[in-house]
Design a protein around this nucleic acid. Sequence first.
DNA 1: CGGAATCTTGACGTTAGTCAATTTCTGTGG
DNA 2: CCACAGAAATTGACTAACGTCAAGATTCCG
Lengths: 258, 258
Amino acid sequence: MPFHDMLNHGVMSVSIGVPMAAMPYRPSAEPGAGTHCAGCAARHIGLCDALVDIDLPELAAAAQWRTIRSGALLMTEGDPARYFFNINHGTAKVYRDLPDGRRQITGFVTAGYFVGLGMPANYSASVEALEDVRLCRFDRLTLRALFVTFPSLERKLLIATGNELLIAQAQMLLLGRKSALERLASFLLAWIEPASPAGTRLPMGRSDIADYLGLTIETVSRNFTILRQRRLIAISTEQEITIVNCAGLTGIAIGAAA
Amino acid sequence: MPFHDMLNHGVMSVSIGVPMAAMPYRPSAEPGAGTHCAGCAARHIGLCDALVDIDLPELAAAAQWRTIRSGALLMTEGDPARYFFNINHGTAKVYRDLPDGRRQITGFVTAGYFVGLGMPANYSASVEALEDVRLCRFDRLTLRALFVTFPSLERKLLIATGNELLIAQAQMLLLGRKSALERLASFLLAWIEPASPAGTRLPMGRSDIADYLGLTIETVSRNFTILRQRRLIAISTEQEITIVNCAGLTGIAIGAAA
DNA sequence: CGGAATCTTGACGTTAGTCAATTTCTGTGG
DNA sequence: CCACAGAAATTGACTAACGTCAAGATTCCG
């Protein structure tokens, strides 16, 4: 169960995958086999999950499909917060920067996550795609109007925002009180399928992991080596990781081991 | 504008100020002058702010007034999350502990704040009163039922939860990337009225500040001294602080000064 | 196969933590 | 009002963990 966080979403300078720039979504114009939200791969993990199939067209009319290329920005901190996003596929990083360049990644967002929760007038963070990202973009005013018709949308967002807050709390404990080794162990447990023998490919590099854990890239690398040498994890090809000793890794992550 | 955070709220072992243990709130039985929610000091900063006066009685019927003595727990991490709280007066700390005793305070809650946002079945943090705290306690199931009648309550909570998330993001940046001096400067700016020449009394001690900023009590103390020696703040009587040079303090807080 | 980017490893420096007094504050009672 | 005791805060000397700087090794892709 991967992590996440985020906050805003935004006016963006991104490449557009589906050629329907400012055009409202139309079922008949949809790409892929499903051709409408009910057939979307993210149908039951995204915002639409709050609605029954019969009500989907109204939500779909407010949604715009986009594909964000790897490395492109979904939103930039400080920009007017016009849009709200629902990720359907791919991974992006949410981060804040200090004036001198120090960066803190506050979360990674994957399929099903909302970007733009609890936003004020301007985005409070930047979001960059780590791989190609498919998403639904909503105009915030349009979406707010839909809340009146479908209170279940608002409930879904309230639950999602609450979950974000829980994850943020856990991350504050990690950043404020855990050692480098404990941070890395916690991170891997959240991202790697514990059972998978084949190994899981991490979508982010060492630099992003460092910015997420409040460490430097060198410290992350050193602690990867420590975990590997202690036979707690196995590293096949760089970011292809396998958890070898889940109990041992968990012990380190929760701070049980001295 | 003080900070905050929080998450759960809970089954609690607390002293009860207003003698109406499990009895539903009744206007005629209310303490103080206002004698009902419309006269409450927190009328326009709490949950009730989402309702017009005419609808208040319905919300009031679901609320129970409580006073939590300084040092008592509002909730304990892991306990079943039966209640939701709305602080009316006083300050409390929200924290998580690691098994070996390391503690991270994820936020301080004051008048107007909600405790128990986005909660799962069990409280995910403990909350302890730093001074006597007055609050309204709601049964979570009862409150959820009210959401159907008054969608504005849910909207209020969504906005509040979103604000929490923004604050949590800022705190992650602080914990992950700021120096001890920058952390303390950021904290003081959030808690001390910049203009007040008389000085503001902090409700928390050095130990709580340390647990909030991810530092030790000694490091907090040393950096208080540094800020005082640089004439950025003045310390009258221990936790009675005045901001002397707001611009200078802000410069440190945002990481502008090298 | 080659070059750039990413990752790893090593030597050394800096910041904050640890351990230990000492000082200051708070509150209580004489 | 002052004296005292306990708690909280400050200060100092030293240590440990992580950051910085600098090579090298690997991986990735054309």
